[in-house]
Structures are given as structure tokens and as C-alpha cells.
Simulated assay, not measured.
Amino acid sequence: MQMICALLIFQTPELPAPLSRLSPWLDHLTMPRGEVYALLARQRHRRFIKTHTPLDGLPIDRRVTYVVTARHPLDLAVSLYHHTTNIDIARMRELTGNALPTEASAARRTLRDWLLAWIGHDTDPRTNPDSLPGVMRHLSDAWARRGAGNVVLIRYDDLCRDLEGRMRGLAERLGLAVPEPVWPGLVRAATFTRMRAGADRYVPGDGIIKNDTSFFRRGSPGAGEEILTGEEIARYHTRVAALAPPDLVAWLHAPGGPSARP
């Protein structure tokens, strides 16, 4: 999504700078706050800022469009598991003074055991936003705000299924007019394959990621359900149903179904 926003703003596959410089990750804490603010102050293009903070932790400004990308929670969890094994913990501690959160560091177990624990773990979503309760709290809040003119929800599955259509819908919501001949190049540049091939330009350059290419491990949905049995998947759905409103749950799990208004 960060790359899509960059492509729509600059309207060329050849970005003028590394993605992390064009779009700082505001709450990553690996760069001093003053440096991030100075970087943003120097920018003359339309700003697009990456954050993992849920909407209720952000100042809501009518001049800002908030784009929330929702991924199937099981796929998100599998991605988190592999992501933590690709992090240089010593480097993270050096830059931030903190190690990995407990939920993430548990990835020393097998993927299946960790995923089952992740599904069942009962934790405060406000202090552990990467937990299943944290993910569903974030998405539930965004879902409740989706009628606002400046809140956009997009499913990762829909980006995989219809990348061009979702990019065009987002451009319209952002008020960005893209010349028709430019579209094919922008869509190709946003694909998982292209981003993986150019990983060194798209992964944050703070030395925390051990292997840039491995950052783009798998682009297709379904990884979580491939690991679990039918009974375990049913247990997951029961858990999610207790954490979020039914219309959000139906939208989140719909197999290639209609997405929320882009």
C-alpha cells in the first residue's frame, strides 16, 4: 500500500528516492523524532506517512486521508512469524533500546504451535496490537469509521485479485488524476514480483532487516489456512466472532467477494 501511494503520487515506476525516505514510518522509532519531522518538513510532494498505529491512536484531521489495509488475520500472523526471524534483534535494541515484543519473540516455536497460541492468546489489545485481539480491535475501529469521507479500507486479498481496479479506486478517493497511458507501468511496479526484485529500494534501510528479499516472502493469500486443520480453523473463526462485529468478519474472510467502498 505504501508503494501504491508512492506510484499514484509520483506517477512513475522510477521513484525519486528510496521508499522509506519518501514515506517515513512515523512510529518505527529507529530514527530520532527530530530527524523524521525535519525530513517531512523538507518534502514538497504530497505527503504519505506509514504507521502501524490504529486510528484511535492518531490525530484525526479532515485534511488527511487514512488508508487502512486489512489482511486475513491468519495470513498476517504467518507473515509476522517469518518477519521476526528476519529481524536483527541486536540492531533493533541498539536503535530503539527495546527488544522484540513478547508476542513476536515467541516465534522461536514451530510455526503451527505459534499460530495456535496466537489464536488463543488473551491479551490487552492496547498494549499488544500484533495479537489477534489487537488486530481485531484496530480493524473494528476502522470499520466503524468507514463511512467517513477520509477513511478508506482496502483488503489485501482484493489487491491480489484486482490490483489495477483497487489502485484506480484509491486514486479517485485521493483526488489524483493519472493519465491513462501511465497506468500499466504503475500497476506492474506495484506487483509483489516487482517489489521483491527491488527489495533493497523498498525495505527500510536501518539495518534491522537481515535479508531484504526475504522481507517479501510470499504475496498470495491463504498461508494461514494451509497450516491448520478444519477443527483448528473453526476454533479461529469462533475466536474472531467474539472479537469483532459480524459484518466486518464476513468482509474480512470473503473469498474474492466485494470489498468495502474503496
Results as ranks from 00 to 15, higher is better:
G222E: 05
H82Q: 12
M92Y: 08
L8C: 03
D27W: 08
L170Y: 04
G147Y: 07
L95D: 11
I209S: 12
P125H: 07
A17W: 00
L132E: 07
L163F: 03
T53G: 00
M92C: 04
D162N: 13
N98L: 11
I60E: 10
E225T: 13
P59Y: 01
R146A: 02
R71A: 03
D158R: 14
G256S: 12
E225W: 03
E14N: 15
S20L: 06
E172T: 13
E225Y: 01
A106I: 01
L29V: 10
S20W: 15
G147N: 14
S259P: 03
N128V: 15
T229C: 00
Q43M: 09
D141M: 10
L186G: 03
E231T: 14
E172V: 12
T12S: 15
S79A: 13
R168K: 14
T69D: 01
R91T: 13
N98P: 00
L163P: 01
S220P: 01
L22W: 05
P73W: 02
R145D: 07
L176K: 02
D141H: 14
V64K: 05
E231C: 05
E172P: 01
R235S: 14
H72F: 03
F215C: 06
G256Y: 13
G134E: 12
P16H: 02
L243H: 06
H138P: 02
R44S: 13
R63H: 11
D206Y: 07
M195Y: 02
R239N: 04
P245Y: 04
R46I: 05
H72C: 07
S20Y: 15
A171Q: 01
C5G: 10
A177V: 12
I49T: 10
T110S: 15
A90D: 14
A260M: 12
R166V: 00
E231A: 15
I209E: 13
L132S: 06
G224R: 07
A104D: 10
D27V: 05
H82C: 01
I208A: 09
T213P: 00
T191A: 12
D157W: 09
L39N: 11
P221A: 13
M31Y: 12
G222V: 05
L15A: 07
N150T: 02
N86A: 01
R47T: 04
G224P: 00
L115Y: 11
A106G: 08
R137Q: 14
V64T: 15
G185H: 10
D124N: 15
I119M: 04
A148L: 12
P24A: 14
